[in-house]
Amino acid sequence: MTSDIEPAVSFRDAVKRFGPVRAVDGLDLAVASGETVALLGRNGAGKSTTISLLLGLTEPDAGDVRLFGAPPERAVLAGRVGAMLQDARAVPRVTVRELVGFVARRYPAPMPLARALELAGIAELAGRRVDRLSGGQVQRVRFALALAGNPALLVLDEPTSALDVEARQAFWASMRGYARRGHTVLFSTHHLEEADAHADRILVIDHGRIVADGTGEQLKRSVGGGLVAFDLAGRPARGLDRLPGVRSLEVRGDRARLRTDDPDATVIALAGMGAIRGLEVAPASLEDAFLTLTSSVTEAA
Rank of each mutant, 00 (worst) to 15 (best):
F68R: 03
L258W: 15
D196W: 03
G26Q: 01
L53V: 06
R140F: 10
S48M: 09
I205H: 02
D241P: 04
T298C: 00
V100D: 00
D206R: 03
L286G: 01
E299T: 03
L29D: 02
A237M: 00
S33H: 03
R132F: 07
P283D: 15
L53D: 07
H183T: 03
I210L: 13
R142Y: 05
R132V: 02
A233V: 12
R259D: 08
D157H: 02
V246M: 04
F143W: 02
L279P: 14
S52L: 10
V15T: 07
V246I: 08
A14E: 08
E59M: 14
T95H: 02
R209A: 13
I276R: 15
L147I: 13
V76K: 09
T294K: 03
A104D: 03
A167Y: 00
P112I: 01
G208S: 13
A233N: 05
H198R: 00
S10L: 02
F187N: 10
T160D: 11
T160Y: 04
F171L: 14
P283W: 12
E98H: 07
E194D: 15
F143S: 08
G136P: 10
A90V: 11
Q137K: 11
L54W: 13
A116D: 05
G253D: 14
G44R: 07
K47H: 09
M84L: 10
G224V: 10
V37P: 12
A237E: 04
A170W: 04
V100R: 05
V185I: 14
A70M: 12
G34K: 11
T36N: 06
V94P: 08
K47T: 15
A265C: 05
H191E: 02
L27A: 04
A75R: 06
R238T: 15
E124K: 06
A88M: 06
L113I: 15
K47V: 11
S295D: 11
G26H: 02
R257Q: 07
G245C: 14
S188P: 09
G245D: 13
L232N: 04
V100C: 12
A38Y: 01
A123P: 00
L39V: 13
R66A: 13
R238Q: 09
S48H: 06
V228F: 14
R106D: 01
F102I: 00
L186T: 01
D262F: 01
L99G: 07
A88E: 15
L279I: 14
R277S: 09
